[in-house]
């Protein structure tokens, strides 16, 4: 008896959830001037995934969260760009240099950089993430200590550098010497890890737009990184996010900066080829 009454009420309660399904149709314009590409045709290599349109995580967030990214005065991530600028100009290490000593103003030297990372480094003969390149400069050029891979200092510097590519399309290379790393990343993307036996694809390829309990699943794109999350009130790096998602499958995670996560980053970045660089973006 009781059960029946509950069922009727429940149908009403549960149904509105369905209205949330899918990304919305809003347009992201920052500061009323920079129109961002947040939905576009999927790159050719994604043909076999069945996904024809790639979509920024911005579309899966509430109007309130979305609004925070539409104006730099409201975007809590912008404070960290300012701190990143201070770091940029600070002399550190045995060579007594700062980033500015070699690269002058980030507006001049760093335009387009974020869009093409991770990227093959000819001298090191490896695919490098932006974080690894930042630390290579610190160690080899400045004689300074590397930043912690997912540290606040690293996130600040990534935010500063990402901003210089705002609105430019993500364009990472997946062929040539980067191809084997890309393949390794793809393999990881489809590997079902942990006691829950879930892969990135289970959530972000097969179920984006769906709710998983209270979370609205996106495509898990990284064009918006570093991301300011309202949940932990700080800037978050790509590998910290990967680690969190793998942990949530009840798996042993990979380490930030590990060859596995570098490969995964290249692969995930390539699934966003064509979306605008958005970092620092805002998510919940």
């Amino acid at each position: 008896m009781k059960l029946k009454a509950l069922t009727a009420a429940a149908a009403l309660l549960v149904a509105p959830g369905l209205a949330l399904a899918g990304p919305d149709d809003d347009t992201l314009v920052i500061n009323g001037e920079t129109e961002m590409v947040t939905k576009t045709e999927a790159p050719a290599h994604m043909e076999e995934t069945g996904i024809s349109e790639i979509i920024s995580g911005w579309h899966f967030r509430s109007d309130e969260t979305q609004a925070l990214e539409m104006d730099d005065f409201d975007n809590p991530g912008m404070v960290f760009v300012d701190i990143g600028m201070e770091q940029w100009e600070t002399v550190e290490g045995s060579a007594e240099k700062s980033c500015a000593s070699c690269h002058d103003a980030p507006e001049d030297s760093m335009t387009g950089v974020r869009a093409v990372y991770p990227k093959w480094n000819e001298e090191a003969e490896e695919v490098r993430t932006l974080a690894q390149q930042i630390n290579a400069c610190r160690e080899d050029q400045m004689g300074a200590e590397p930043y912690g891979y997912t540290s606040g200092e690293m996130a600040n510097m990534e935010a500063l550098i990402s901003l210089q590519s705002r609105g430019m399309p993500v364009d990472v290379a997946i062929d040539g010497p980067a191809q084997s790393t890309w393949e390794a990343g793809k393999e990881l993307y489809y590997t079902r890890t942990g006691q829950l036996e879930l892969s990135c694809a289970n959530c972000h390829e097969n179920n984006y737009g769906n709710m998983i309990r209270a979370d609205h699943l996106s495509q898990g794109q990284i064009n918006g990184f570093p991301v300011y999350r309202l949940k932990n009130a700080k800037l978050n790096t790509v590998h910290a996010r990967f680690k969190g998602c793998v942990r949530d499958t009840r798996a042993e995670t990979y380490s930030p900066g590990s060859p596995e996560f570098v490969a995964l980053e290249l692969y995930v970045a390539s699934r966003g080829n064509g979306l605008s660089v958005e970092g620092p973006s805002v998510r919940n």
């Binding site: 890890t193 009840r250 798996a251």
Partner: peptide
């Protein structure tokens, strides 16, 4: 029979 089994949600190996 799991791949990279973890210790619950700790992210550590199980």
């Amino acid at each position: 029979g799991f791949i990279r089994p973890g210790d619950g949600f700790t992210g550590k190996a199980g």
